[in-house]
Design a binder for these strands. Sequence first.
RNA 1: GGGAGCAUAGCUCAGCUGGUUCAGAGCAUCUGCCUUACAAGCAGAGGGUCCGCGGUUCGAACCCGUGUGCUCCCACCA
Length: 892
Amino acid sequence: MEELSKNYSPAAVEEKWTVHWKEKKYFKSVPDGRKPFTVVIPPPNVTGVLHMGHTLNETVQDILVRKARMSGFNACWVPGSDHASIATEAKVVGMLKEMGIDKNKLSRPEFLKYAYEWKEKYGGIIYHQIEKLGCSVDWDRVTFTMDTDYYKAVMKVFTDLYNKGLIYRGARMINWDPAAQTALSDEEVEYKDLQGNLYYIRYAITDAGGKEISNPVTGEKGIVIATQRPETIMGDTAICVNPNDERYAHVRNAFAYVPLINRRIPVIFDEYVDPAFGTGALKVTPAHDINDYNLGLKHNLEVVDTLNADGTLSEAAVIYIGEDRFAARKKIIAELHEKGFIVKDESYQTRVGYSQRTGVAVEPRISTQWFLKMKALAEPALKAVVEGDINIHPGDKFLATYKYWLENVKDWCISRQLWWGQQIPAWYDASGNVVVAEDEAAAKKLYADQFPELAKNNPVLTQDEDVLDTWFSSWLWPMEVFKGVSNPGNTDINYYYPTSVLVTGQDIIFFWVARMVMAGMEYNKEKTIAEAIPFKDVYFTGMVRDKLGRKMSKQLGNSPDLLQLIDTYGADAVRFGIMISSPAGNDLLFDNASLDQGKFFNNKLWNALKLVKMWEQRVDESLAVTDDFATRWFESRLSEVRTNVEQLFETFRLSEGLKTIYSLIWDDFCSWYLEWVKPGFEQPISAAVYRKTISFFTELLQLLHPYMPFITEEIYHVLEERKEDLCVLQFTGVAEINRGTLVEGELLKQVITALRDARVKHQMKPKDEITLHIQTNAAQKYKQITTILGRQVNARAIHISEVAETGNISLVVGQDRLYVHSSLVTDSTAQKEELEKDLLYQKGFLQVIEKKLGNERFVQNAKPEVVELERKKQADAEAKIKAIEESLAQLG
RNA sequence: GGGAGCAUAGCUCAGCUGGUUCAGAGCAUCUGCCUUACAAGCAGAGGGUCCGCGGUUCGAACCCGUGUGCUCCCACCA
């Protein structure tokens, strides 16, 4: 026999099985007669690396997929990656900068060439990580959101929605990222609390004729407003006060003058202004604040945009042109102070929006963008979830969030001023006439149809410079990975769609989950809701934090490198560590200690293998089985746990499932079962018991396989010569559970533990022999377990009798008295104390039950089973008390 | 400002429909063991006002109200 190493070493084993599984194409899926189980990976950023959040998500998906594959399903897990427009472009721009290249100096094709090179270089990292983690994905189905067909699908959808009147182009106030110089969706802005300053600035006031006016009551000149952003005053186009505010009755039809540039602006009245805030007067800057913008629309105000796209002051600002907005703010504050415009300033708690991608402060800015109307799309998406066609796990924790967003959804700004992404399929002629079509040829044709007169001159059509928001491609993911958009009705989409379960982070519920539902509903209108939805279940994983509860981030350096973790602990241990304590939707505090636990578990399995392999040489076909309690017990126990795990999978309680299997293997199998069937030193083992043991071990490996695929596959093959592989071994039906045997097994454990405890308390070594007397009113109870009991507690003999016996050590287990004879024990004080303590507890316990049963209202109102249970508890307690008292009496 | 969630052992968390699987698991701690699979292990032990207060109920960790403390989401009054 080949010598097994002392400890399990994962690296070589994991490599071996990764290659073998791949060669065998086990994870390749093609439509067949079985039921499909489809999962599409939430595509990570193509140039990113997997962080611990991904690791958790991929592990959960792999567990579900492997379990399904072993349960008769045609499991298909599609891997892929996202071009992640702005995130990737920002990285490429950064890389170019390091090379000394300015993006603005490059042409679009030149830039895209660099971007594709970058993608080729780093795009493989995540796939390598996914493979190292043991994910059983179908590599033949790898999809990238900018693949040729995928690109076409996006063009098709854009054109379709445009033709349906759902996409429009317009000037709106959007969130502007001055670093990336692009629009952002509302969802891409993150707000942070900051300590800011509120500046009170005085504006001069005149009447319509240009005569300076002052407050008739206070005599105060001008009007004071409060602002956090003095650098935007040059964009002011009105001062607004509440019409009901008595303090400002005198400024009706008046004009104010913007400090420093002395531009005349009207004073307007609107109830929007809160008289209680600041001075009750508001400067209106429609170009740089969303509320001011709305106010401007209402009052037909001029819009003066004082900022350039890069966040510097524009010509319109008149002063400090070309200076950065933050530098300009400082200088303007200084100048306002100097010239006496600032009345006072005070510190002020404020919130500022930052770009999720580049981290710079976002500017509200008016610009022309493409929008998608959301209302009509949201309705069916809401219905699908509310009516239960899509089930969100855990429970309805996120249902409310989902509903709220869909009910209050705003139009989606889908254009981005970037190059990396799908370019918007809109073409303009020189005078701005626009046609939208899937490609240039179609656009030209359409143009000729729509503008026949203009088309005669064969004008140049230029495509829109902008690309689409990355989510405008990823919302098609569950369909387009099966070419369901570019080639609808094909065999794959018909077979695999809708997918079974989506596993993702709760943070992208709006970005992605809700929008996928919308797209699914929109492009499967002819189908029922149940067929149109992109997935039946959504499983939200929580956020992975470090063990101190902090978010994982590069800055803190608390985000471990996945490949390094796998090198140190092995992929199985990483999977174990991340799954052992991560209930759905709850944040997971990641600690290497749980990876250690996983590594130790690997080793435990390995050692169990070594033990069983040792027996292989000593199997005796002729040895009769005199006692098969252990095998009968474990069979029932295994069935019980398998049934339990099945239920846990159905409810997505995967963490609980792992705990259950872990305990079954470590405690029930290793600590109890193997000890019970273990032959004496160099003794033979009966063939029947050996075969049962192999079969149990195999079932355990199968049960654990979805969680820890590598070590289970390895042990499966070392345990016995096998033709097939564990990863595709199908689960068989669960054997019958014998409740009586389970009860006997528990009693056996209990008695063994009690006797071990007694040995420790009396300083007796395991080798010291004892004689055991069990006095029981139901000798039957011990009949099945006596043989094992004797061996496990190292008893020379066990006597079970109805009559009382005596011994040096007196114990009560359940209601039964046990006596141990040993020449080593002389002092009985300690055991007396122990028994008395127990007696006191039991008496108190009995009192509580008696009180309960004495309560007429309890007996009347409680369910009969409950009352019956209490009666049994009473009887048990009484019997136990009697046993303890008798034991005490005999100790003297 | 609006909404959601959480609070159980030193730490991380289970505890599904209120009643013996009701106070649990893992880690950590303590004691004893190099026992012929495993010291990455074995055997054993200690440890809790189930956040405070009130209510419903025969009965509450569990249901309701309230207070406190944390977390998250949404909105964005200069």
